[in-house]
């Protein structure tokens, strides 16, 4: 399975994402730049985290209007999977590819810590290697991760099982409505989440709870436990 990573000025998690995708898929992802109007033939496009365009105007607002995002939208329309992590999630909502908005954290401080997530829906192409309701560890690092949607939109995404990850065990780090940490679009092929699963994929990271997300998206079967 082939992947692509979108690189924009001001992102700073692109190398972590490229390293994670390389380790997990065995192939180095292609990188696409802000002015690229076409993305090569891939199965997964990832927009990593950081501070694209200095977070000027609103987080992700300027990136969302760059030519490369039209190419990302075209891929998504063709059914290609798209993941936006942190700033990538902010870019996807600003681009209108995911509903709602990501606002300043309710306590107004940057948060950099580990949280717990509950896998709310394990019946998606992004979460099939997790168990339903599984609690996983995940690092977060953001200033604007406070998810907001109007009541009608919120009821729709909740009702349609489109909240894939929710902050669990009272670890909501930003005031997100309904403890929402990650959502998908109506078609289920565009995922945005604030936590950084790419930073928890191997023993050297101190855990690998983020790995099944990428293995799910890349169609890699979960490793079977050794028979007792």
């Amino acid at each position: 399975m082939k992947s692509a990573v979108v690189v924009l000025p001001g992102l700073n998690r692109d190398r972590d994402m490229i390293a994670a995708l390389t380790k997990i898929s065995g192939k180095v992802p292609v990188t696409v730049w802000q002015t690229d109007t076409e993305i090569p033939d891939v199965d997964l496009v990832v927009i990593p985290g950081g501070f694209s365009y200095g977070d000027y105007l609103r987080c992700g607002a300027i990136a969302a209007r760059m030519p490369v995002m039209r190419a990302v939208a075209e891929k998504a329309e063709k059914g290609v999977q798209v993941i936006g992590v942190c700033n990538g999630f902010q870019i996807l909502v600003e681009a209108g590819m995911l509903p709602g908005a990501l606002m300043r954290n309710d306590h107004l401080k940057f948060v950099c810590r580990e949280v717990k997530l509950r896998v709310e829906n394990a019946n998606t192409s992004f979460t099939r290697n997790y168990a339903p309701g599984q609690i996983i560890r995940a690092p977060v690092a953001h200033h604007d991760g406070n998810y907001f949607a109007d009541p009608e939109t919120l009821a729709r995404i909740e009702g349609e099982g489109r909240v894939l990850f929710r902050y669990a065990e009272n670890t909501n780090p930003n005031g997100s409505i309904n403890d929402i940490a990650g959502i998908v679009n109506d078609r289920g092929n565009v995922l945005g989440l604030m936590p950084h699963p790419e930073n928890l994929i191997e023993a050297a990271h101190g855990g690998s709870d983020g790995r099944p997300l990428f293995e799910s998206a890349l169609g890699i079967a979960a490793p079977q436990p050794e028979p007792a």
Binding site: L57, R58, A61, I62, R65, V93, E94, P99, G100, A101, M103, F148, A149, D150
Partner: peptide, 9 residues
């Protein structure tokens, strides 16, 4: 509509 405001919020 296209840039200066996020009309969601």
């Amino acid at each position: 509509d296209r840039l200066l405001a996020n009309t969601v919020i």
